[in-house]
């Protein structure tokens, strides 16, 4: 297991992402942050803090549980626990920043987009991810990327966050093919 981002790097990356989001949107007035469960939620909360220190503006924040929109419910061997979507504001006409930890096949983002569209009609939806590891299976790209991390398919990217993992860092792990 190799550490590819440590705590200092993690925080710098978040600060840069916040600046890029603000620069592209010319401020924060119309922004809303929506994180995809589980770590996207924590990243959204961190980004809100950073944006608050820069703009002195507290953004609205929402949490998206995409389970009901997954396209692989029939194939996975365990049943994911529903934790629910919590968005207690109107997303119509907002510029929504959709946040996730790792962008991989793009299928999670596809599910999230479908769910958001059912919830309303935002002015725009932009995607921010901490890590883009490649291997897309759908025509989806991120607007804001913390770090591009070229990987092979037998590797796993593990984002750790203090809220649940006791540290802020990113690891690259080689999986044992044919193992387990």
């Amino acid at each position: 297991m190799k550490k590819v981002i440590d705590e200092t790097g993690f925080n710098r990356t978040l600060t840069r992402l916040a600046h890029e989001i603000l620069e592209k949107n010319k401020g924060a007035e119309n922004l809303a942050l929506i994180g995809i469960r589980t770590r996207g939620e924590f990243l959204a909360k961190r980004l809100r803090e950073v944006i608050w220190t820069i703009e002195n503006l507290e953004l609205k924040i929402g949490i998206l549980d995409i389970t009901l929109y997954r396209d692989d419910l029939k194939e996975i061997h365990y049943q994911p626990l529903l934790k629910g979507t919590e968005i207690d504001f109107d997303i119509n006409k907002k510029d929504v920043i959709l946040i996730d930890d790792v962008l991989f096949t793009g299928r999670t983002v596809r599910a999230a987009l479908d769910e958001l569209v059912d919830l309303g009609r935002p002015s725009s939806i932009q995607l921010a991810v901490l890590i883009d590891r490649g291997h897309r299976e759908l025509p989806i790209r991120a607007d804001f990327v913390g770090k591009n991390l070229p990987t092979s398919l037998n590797e796993e990217v593990k984002v750790a966050m203090k809220e649940i993992d006791s540290e802020d860092s990113v690891y690259l792990k080689t999986l044992n093919i044919g193992g387990e």
Partner: peptide, 20 residues
Amino acid sequence: LDTAETFREVLERPIKKVPT
């Protein structure tokens, strides 16, 4: 009962339908 809470939220949405 916990799962039903998620669906209560779905029933409050403008589009009360999910593709599950």
